[in-house]
Amino acid sequence: MAVNVMNAFVGRPPIDGGVFYRGPIGATLPTDATALPGSEFEDHGAVGPDGVNITQNRTSTDEKMFGGGTFIDLQTEYDETIEITLLEDDNDAVLKTSFGDANVVKTEATSSDGTKRVIYHTDEQLPISSFVARTAYGSKKKTYVVERGRVTSVTTTPDAHGATTKRTVTIKTFPPVSTELRGGNVVEYRDDGAPLVSGGEG
């Protein structure tokens, strides 16, 4: 088979810079690779150099037959997670995704004080939400849609002089309710950005 470098994809932020979004259940989801998420979604700003990392995990066991050989393998578990590092420590969307919407209390700046935030670190489980992640490579685009997911892990780097404070979030995904998503924990939309060119008359 001939090698075709045009089939490569090198992930970068889209031209508008919006990579990662979270919105409430029921928010308007993109239905193709070029559509933006609905206004209910919040942009989380800059993400780390590892981009968007999606992992599918499948667990299976072998059913044996007489004589000890394997008759069939049975899938017993399926899980899909998304991991992404968020760089903007003072971004309200980042904070609410990491700690819970009600646990981030913001007071706007006044003539005498700057913007203030109180962040409550609690053991309350984070909500099930919808998520969208977008990447691009030239005219090519990819959009990942999660109708139902939950942040299950947040790893925060130290407040130190050698690097910015950043948060790596892990999102556990669940099967969607919407039938048009065909059971996809994650639905990936792609567009190669190369429409057909009609030939002119000779």
Rank of each mutant, 00 (worst) to 15 (best):
E63D: 08
E63R: 09
M65D: 14
M65T: 14
M65A: 14
M65R: 14
F66D: 13
F66C: 06
F66K: 09
G67A: 13
G67K: 10
G68F: 07
G68E: 14
G69T: 01
G69M: 02
G69V: 01
G69L: 00
T70I: 15
I72R: 14
I72N: 09
E77I: 03
E77F: 01
Y78Q: 13
D79N: 14
E80A: 04
E80I: 05
E80Q: 11
E83P: 06
I84W: 02
I84C: 05
T85E: 14
T85H: 05
L86M: 03
L86G: 05
L87W: 03
L87N: 10
E88R: 10
E88P: 11
D90E: 14
D90R: 12
N91Q: 10
N91W: 04
N91D: 14
A93W: 01
V94D: 07
V94K: 04
V94Q: 03
V94R: 03
K96M: 06
T97I: 05
S98N: 08
F99M: 05
G100A: 05
D101A: 15
A102M: 11
N103K: 10
N103M: 09
N103E: 13
V104N: 09
V104P: 11
V104M: 08
V105Y: 02
V105Q: 11
V105F: 03
K106A: 12
K106T: 15
T107A: 09
E108C: 06
E108I: 09
A109R: 12
T110S: 15
T110D: 13
T110K: 09
T110M: 08
S111H: 07
S112V: 06
S112Q: 12
D113R: 12
T115D: 06
T115G: 00
K116Q: 15
R117E: 11
R117H: 10
I119K: 09
I119L: 07
H121E: 11
T122R: 05
T122V: 01
T122N: 03
T122Q: 04
D123Q: 15
D123I: 14
E124L: 04
E124M: 05
E124N: 06
Q125E: 12
P127G: 06
P127F: 01
I128N: 03
I128D: 06
S130K: 00
V132Q: 03
A133S: 10
A133C: 07
T135Y: 03
T135L: 13
T135P: 08
A136W: 07
S139H: 13
S139F: 07
K142W: 00
K142P: 05
Y144Q: 02
V145W: 00
V146D: 04
G149W: 03
R150Q: 15
R150P: 10
V151A: 02
T152H: 00
S153T: 13
T155Q: 11
T156R: 06
T156H: 04
T156W: 02
T156A: 09
T157S: 15
P158M: 11
P158I: 07
D159P: 04
H161V: 15
H161E: 15
G162C: 08
A163E: 11
T164Y: 10
T165S: 08
T165K: 14
R167N: 00
R167H: 02
T168M: 13
V169D: 06
V169H: 02
T170M: 06
I171A: 08
K172M: 11
K172C: 09
K172G: 12
T173Y: 02
P175D: 10
P176N: 13
P176A: 11
V177A: 08
S178W: 00
S178F: 00
S178D: 14
S178H: 01
T179E: 10
